[in-house]
Design a protein around this nucleic acid. Structure first.
Length: 243
DNA sequence: ACACTAACCTGCAAGC
DNA sequence: TGCTTGCAGGTTAGTG
């Protein structure tokens, strides 16, 4: 492994290059937005942030701007990590996976449900949008998908999480699952410089009803979509369809 | 315990 | 045209 730029979201774990030498890859899994590359005596936790990508390149391929890390395998393959905004991370973990310990359920599993959201939100005053974006509540729901799921559910993003009914949380959990599945089917949402592992953009942005459409007309009722800020994130909603 | 803000970084777009 | 400013994204440390 060779680290050219160690200054990512967090500093790349000191000494990671030496620690991985000679170790076999035992398994590759995922938890939340972390890729877990399990070696014989520990794991590499890779997060792509918002602009990170992994690509297999020719051995000795020239380093492009924003290529920060590469891993050379025993069979000659070379994996290159590219990340213009450096919001990703490469951390070495000895099994405890400190970063992953307090995460909520995966959104596409049955443990994530309206009941879960309802239980976790009782007594909470936080707005429902930052609530569902909280990794301790459920993982994987970023700003785009939170905005779209709330629109489909008819829930205003600034409503108190504790004041959303059990029934509406059932609806919301269903839409979160649907929005995520649809986005995955369409290869993700391309904002500016995103590309997938084949270098292709995603197409889900063609399906967005509210995200990035502040001031435009609601696709359902033609009202002007409102844009507010919640937890430093822009939040667009329809004042007529969402209550 | 909870709510909220700032910070990390770069490229792009809007405004002057 | 060229400069400056603000925003986007995911996550967590820090403050109240």
């Amino acid at each position: 492994m060779s680290v050219r730029q160690a200054s990512l979201r967090w500093p790349v774990t000191d000494g990671i290059e030496e620690r991985v030498i000679g170790q076999r890859v035992v398994d590759v899994t995922r938890r939340a937005k972390y890729l877990i590359i399990k070696l014989e005596k520990g794991s590499i936790l890779v997060h792509l942030g918002m602009s990170g990508s992994l690509r297999v390149v020719e051995p000795k391929a020239e380093w492009r701007k924003h290529d920060h890390i590469e891993v050379s395998f025993g069979n000659g393959a070379v994996l290159r990590y590219h990340d213009p905004r450096r919001f990703g991370s490469w951390l070495w973990s000895l099994g405890d996976h400190h970063q992953l310990m307090h995460l909520g359920p995966e959104p596409l599993l049955s443990e994530f449900s309206g009941e879960h959201l309802w239980k976790r939100s009782r007594g909470r005053k936080i707005a429902v949008k930052p609530f569902i974006m909280d990794n301790k509540v459920v993982v994987g729901v970023g700003n785009i998908y939170a905005s779209e799921a709330l629109f489909r559910s008819g829930i205003r993003p600034d409503r108190s999480a504790g004041r959303v009914s059990r029934k509406r949380y059932d609806v919301l959990a269903g839409h979160i699952k649907d929005v995520l599945k649809a986005a995955i089917d369409q290869g993700g949402t391309t904002l500016r410089d995103f590309v997938n592992s084949s270098g292709e953009p995603g197409y889900f942005q063609q399906t967005l009803s509210v995200y990035g459409r502040g001031g435009k007309q609601c696709v359902v009722c033609d009202s002007v979509l409102r844009e507010i800020r919640l937890g430093q994130r822009s939040s667009v909603f329809c004042p007529t369809c969402q209550r």
